[in-house]
Design a protein around this nucleic acid. Structure first.
Lengths: 193, 193
DNA sequence: CGACACATGTAACACGTTACATGATTTG
DNA sequence: CAAATCATGTAACGTGTTACATGTGTCG
């Protein structure tokens, strides 16, 4: 979905051809999610089939630019005004992994949590490094980095919450020695309306 | 990826057939991510082709159970021990939408943020409702709900951060009256190693 | 010339969704 | 009996990835 509408958004700025669109997309999103060039062309083909874009005649340099149509502009407006819901979000692989680890024999859930925690912290450090590095203009790129930072922080909090819950669950064995569980309370209220 | 390995994890508990596997998967993940039954069969076919599962003879009730193989167990162990990295995470549609909205003419980014904020808060309320309702046993289901809660909270924080950044950016106009921006500082440090 | 960037595409495959077809068994 | 549930599959399509094929232009 994001590629299809992303291309529409880029074409709203003005006509462009496939190769340009990939570059623009990656520039806007800061190369976080590299866009496959093949997919650009196939998506443009589908968009043209659905009358959301229109192909312009090939120019002298062998470039095939496209324009957005009125229908495309309408679809784009719908995309921007319709919030992302839980429905169109993909399955959370980490949550599924943890949930299944709980009932899988010979799997130590804590070690899974630990490994993930380390990996996520490493990612978070990388993001903060990127954030400093991208202290120049590009507002969109900065916000995307912030998004990844917020996400990673939330994930770490959740992992800590998981570990604490797991320890609470095994009331028989006392908590092992080398341990650093300092989780905040799992209960929260919606901040406001 | 999650379906493939999810099925392996369920088969690690013991042999099962497709219909059972869907029910088990949805029970483990609390029907948050309903699993298409057609995909179960096609995935099982691929898993068998790759020698990660083996089909058992069809029984009297017309059921076709599968067993996990040693190779399947190995693949499952790799899945559990390998953390989820930013690479295998799908594109964040919300982040892309916001980033592109910034450079799209005739799009009011603030209204996009507002609409998303409302939708996410609604989702968060639904999650907390689910959490109360699922106060019985199922630990996995509770952790998955918590995961969604943490994610939604992070998203709201990020949206507030976006709005604050946008207002800070437009230094000419004074902040409009009816406004509730009480975001925390965007700067964070990695909590520990 | 040879390597590299530019530019457009196709093929094959994995994964995901919706929809359809087909039957057996259970239950009101 | 009729409807629902159980159970297995296929078809079509969208989306995403990797890889390949093909050609132009530029630069060392």
């Amino acid at each position: 979905m994001s590629v299809k509408h992303g291309l529409l958004a880029l074409l709203e700025r003005g006509p462009a051809y496939g190769y340009q669109l990939r570059a623009s997309f990656e520039e806007s999103t800061g190369a976080t999610w590299p866009l496959n060039i093949g997919q650009v062309y196939t998506t443009l083909t589908r968009l043209e089939r659905d009358h959301l874009v229109r192909a312009l005649p090939e120019n002298q340099q062998g470039q095939r630019p496209y324009t957005i149509t009125d229908a495309g502009r309408a679809a784009l407006a719908v995309w921007f005004t319709t919030p992302v819901t839980g429905n169109d979000r993909p399955r959370d692989e980490l949550a599924i992994k943890l949930a299944l680890a709980l009932t899988t024999p010979d799997i130590d859930v804590s070690s899974v949590v630990q490994a993930q925690r380390i990996a996520t912290i490493r990612a978070l450090q990388e993001y903060t490094r990127l954030k400093k590095q991208a202290d120049n203009g590009d507002l969109a790129w900065q916000l995307i980095i912030d998004s990844m930072i917020f996400r990673a922080e939330g994930e770490i909090r959740w992992l800590d919450h998981c570990e604490a819950t797991l320890l609470r669950r095994s009331t028989t064995t006392p908590p092992p020695s080398g341990n650093r569980v300092d989780v905040d309370a799992p209960e929260r209220e919606a901040t406001n309306t």
